[in-house]
Amino acid sequence: CHSECLGNCSQPDDPTKCVACRNFYLDGRCVETCPPPYYHFQDWRCVNFSFCQDLHHKCKNSRRQGCHQYVIHNNKCIPECPSGYTMNSSNLLCTPCLGPCPKVCHLLEGEKTIDSVTSAQELRGCTVINGSLIINIRGGNNLAAELEANLGLIEEISGYLKIRRSYALVSLSFFRKLRLIRGETLEIGNYSFYALDNQNLRQLWDWSKHNLTITQGKLFFHYNPKLCLSEIHKMEEVSGTKGRQERNDIALKTNGDQASCENELLKFSYIRTSFDKILLRWEPYWPPDFRDLLGFMLFYKEAPYQNVTEFDGQDACGSNSWTVVDIDPPLRSNDPKSQNHPGWLMRGLKPWTQYAIFVKTLVTFSDERRTYGAKSDIIYVQTDATNPSVPLDPISVSNSSSQIILKWKPPSDPNGNITHYLVFWERQAEDSELFELDYCLKGLKLPSRTWSPPFESEDSQKHNQSEYEDSAGECCSCPKTDSQILKELEESSFRKTFEDYLHNVVFVPRKT
């Protein structure tokens, strides 16, 4: 048989008469490798580009789960590009990614509803959504962080984005990388972005840091009482949809009607710091009717980097990364020049730590249904340095008659930039024990000054392991946590139920 035959053949030295091919099969003959313009397919066939392209389009058009959109890589027609490569849609070739590779997620039936953290986790790592997304989240724990972890990498949506009755959302900033909504599939009414009845939605994105392009379709905003109209108009300008909307697409009466839409800028007039305090004062603000001013709200939190936005980490279910302080308005003076500047002394802060701070007014709604208010920009203030805590785990070892090696770990709280350490030492008198000992005694162990690591005695271990207080009263049991108490109650309830079950099964009433 021919060298490319495997198993047997019907005619000697003829690659077209093989029972099976050793390498690849091409047009009725066995070959060692697939010549151009053919590609290896499933490690035994040679196919042309049209064959591989037909497989790709067949799966793409069917949208069946589990099928493969075949691509070409290293002269092979394979189910998908290997790690580190992405497909070129024009020629199906796998090309190296520039940075992290995109991950295209194809949605069944063309859309997916995100109504819980669990459903959001199914899209973790996706960068391109081939379909439409509907966000409908009523509640949950730590929602802002969970949504950002699972949806934060999405850069492109081919269909539309719909935010509907998501009472738990305060902001859409968890879509931190969303840059493009194509609108290839539109919501009824030709809408590519749809926001309806979101009672706590206050911000779409921080438009000073976020760009969003909507290729096709219109915007729809109705019944978002805490979303200011200025935020919607800003989205029109940034996304390129200005002029597409009709009169009733953006409701003037049901958007922002319960919001404090600040239209003035508060400026800080005085800032002073110490290692654990920050004193702030800002310019006074009074609405047209000074009785509408209820006070100020001061927001602050630790910020290692200057990239904080107002609604980071917030949701309507209680999660809030900001510390909020309510401040009463100052006494009002008739003389504008003698107006008191409101302020606040922030206490209990960490030394040498940068804080993000902003302040906003708290006002009631005027009778004319106009909203007044003022808010400052987010500023960054760093507390002063102070003395560091003591170095940890000092170790001293003498390696000769004239040297001592000293080692330690950095302090747990540096409280500033540590530039150097101060080492103090003092000579001590020799131990009298060394002169009084009889060095001729056998088995004498000389006193040693070398360091030995501390260890816990058996008594201390027994005390720590004991669940009861000892007789001397030195140790006591740790208080039980809520989960331990709940577990004990469940076990007790189970024992009672099981005992009742045994009584009912074992003891049967005697027939009379």
Rank of each mutant, 00 (worst) to 15 (best):
K103P: 07
V104P: 02
V104K: 03
C105G: 00
C105W: 00
H106Q: 10
H106E: 15
H106F: 02
H106G: 06
H106S: 11
H106D: 12
L107M: 08
L108S: 11
E109G: 14
E109W: 14
T113L: 12
T113E: 13
T113P: 13
I114N: 01
I114G: 00
I114V: 10
D115Y: 04
V117M: 12
A120L: 07
Q121E: 02
Q121F: 11
L123A: 12
C126R: 00
C126M: 01
T127F: 03
T127G: 11
V128M: 15
V128Y: 04
V128E: 01
G131C: 01
G131W: 00
S132K: 01
L133K: 00
L133P: 00
L133N: 00
I134E: 15
I134D: 00
I135E: 01
N136W: 10
N136V: 08
G140K: 11
N141I: 05
N141D: 12
L143G: 15
A144V: 10
E146P: 15
L147C: 02
E148L: 07
A149F: 15
N150R: 08
L153I: 14
L153V: 13
L153E: 15
L153W: 14
I154P: 00
I154F: 01
E155T: 10
E156S: 04
E156T: 13
E156Y: 04
G159E: 00
Y160E: 02
Y160V: 12
L161G: 00
R165E: 02
S166F: 07
S166L: 12
A168L: 03
L169S: 10
L169E: 11
L169H: 03
V170G: 13
V170P: 07
S171W: 04
L172I: 15
S173R: 10
F174K: 00
F175V: 03
K177G: 03
L178P: 00
R179A: 09
R179F: 08
L180N: 03
I181A: 00
I181S: 00
G183N: 00
G183L: 01
G183R: 01
E184M: 03
L186P: 09
L186Q: 10
E187F: 10
I188S: 05
G189K: 02
N190G: 14
N190H: 04
Y191H: 03
Y191E: 10
S192L: 00
S192P: 07
S192F: 01
S192A: 01
F193E: 00
Y194E: 12
Y194G: 08
Y194A: 06
A195Y: 00
L196Q: 14
N198H: 01
Q199S: 04
N200M: 05
N200G: 03
N200Q: 15
L201M: 02
Q203Y: 14
W205Q: 02
W205T: 02
W205R: 02
D206V: 09
W207C: 05
S208W: 07
S208G: 15
S208V: 05
S208I: 11
K209H: 09
N211T: 10
L212P: 03
T213Q: 14
T213S: 08
I214P: 00
I214S: 05
T215R: 12
T215N: 14
T215F: 07
Q216A: 08
F221W: 03
Y223V: 15
Y223S: 07
Y223G: 07
Y223D: 12
N224A: 02
K226M: 12
K226F: 12
K226N: 13
L227M: 12
C228G: 05
L229A: 14
L229Y: 11
L229G: 02
S230P: 05
I232M: 04
K234Q: 06
K234T: 11
K234R: 10
E236P: 04
V238E: 06
S239F: 06
S239D: 02
G240N: 04
T241C: 15
T241N: 09
K242F: 10
K242G: 14
G243A: 14
G243T: 08
R244A: 04
R244C: 08
E246F: 09
R247G: 15
R247L: 12
R247K: 10
N248L: 09
D249T: 10
A251M: 04
L252P: 09
K253Y: 09
K253Q: 10
K253F: 09
T254C: 14
T254R: 09
N255E: 05
N255H: 05
G256Q: 02
G256V: 12
A259V: 11
S260V: 09
S260T: 09
C261R: 05
C261K: 03
E262A: 15
N263F: 11
E264V: 04
L265M: 15
L266T: 05
K267L: 09
K267I: 15
F268C: 04
Y270L: 01
T273Y: 14
S274Y: 15
S274V: 03
S274C: 05
I278L: 15
I278R: 00
I278A: 10
L279D: 02
L279T: 01
L280R: 01
L280C: 15
W282A: 02
W282H: 02
W282S: 01
E283F: 09
E283S: 09
P284A: 02
P284T: 03
Y285W: 14
Y285F: 13
Y285L: 14
W286L: 14
W286P: 15
P287K: 03
D289S: 12
F290S: 08
F290Q: 04
D292A: 06
D292L: 13
D292Y: 06
L293T: 10
L293D: 04
L293Q: 10
L294A: 05
G295R: 02
F296R: 00
F296S: 06
M297D: 12
M297L: 14
M297A: 06
M297T: 02
L298Q: 00
F299I: 13
Y300L: 04
Y300P: 00
K301L: 06
E302P: 10
A303Q: 12
A303T: 06
P304S: 05
Y305W: 15
N307V: 09
N307G: 03
T309L: 08
F311C: 02
F311Q: 13
D312C: 03
D312Q: 02
D312S: 08
D312M: 13
D312T: 14
G313I: 13
G313R: 07
D315Y: 11
D315I: 03
A316S: 04
A316V: 03
C317S: 03
S319F: 11
S319A: 11
N320M: 10
N320C: 06
N320F: 09
N320I: 10
N320A: 10
S321R: 11
W322D: 03
W322R: 01
T323A: 10
T323M: 13
T323H: 15
V324W: 07
V325K: 02
V325W: 06
D326V: 02
I327H: 03
I327K: 02
D328P: 15
D328N: 11
D328A: 09
P329Y: 06
P329T: 09
L331T: 13
R332W: 11
R332T: 12
N334H: 10
N334E: 03
N340P: 06
N340R: 03
H341D: 07
P342E: 13
G343F: 03
W344K: 09
M346A: 08
R347V: 13
K350D: 15
K350Y: 14
P351M: 05
W352A: 14
T353A: 08
Q354N: 12
Q354L: 09
Y355P: 00
A356S: 08
A356K: 02
A356T: 05
I357M: 01
I357G: 02
V359H: 01
V359E: 00
V359I: 15
T361D: 02
T361I: 11
T361L: 08
L362M: 15
L362E: 03
L362S: 15
V363D: 11
D367F: 14
D367Y: 10
D367T: 09
E368D: 09
E368A: 13
R369L: 10
R369Y: 13
R370M: 07
Y372Q: 03
G373R: 08
S376P: 00
I378M: 03
I378C: 05
I379V: 07
I379F: 06
I379C: 13
V381E: 12
Q382N: 12
T383M: 02
T383W: 00
T383F: 00
A385R: 12
A385T: 14
P388T: 01
S389M: 15
D393N: 02
I395H: 13
V397G: 12
S398V: 07
S398M: 07
S398C: 01
S400D: 13
S400T: 07
S400P: 10
S400E: 15
S401V: 05
S401K: 13
S401A: 12
S402T: 15
Q403R: 13
Q403P: 00
K407W: 15
P410V: 06
P410L: 06
P410R: 12
P411A: 14
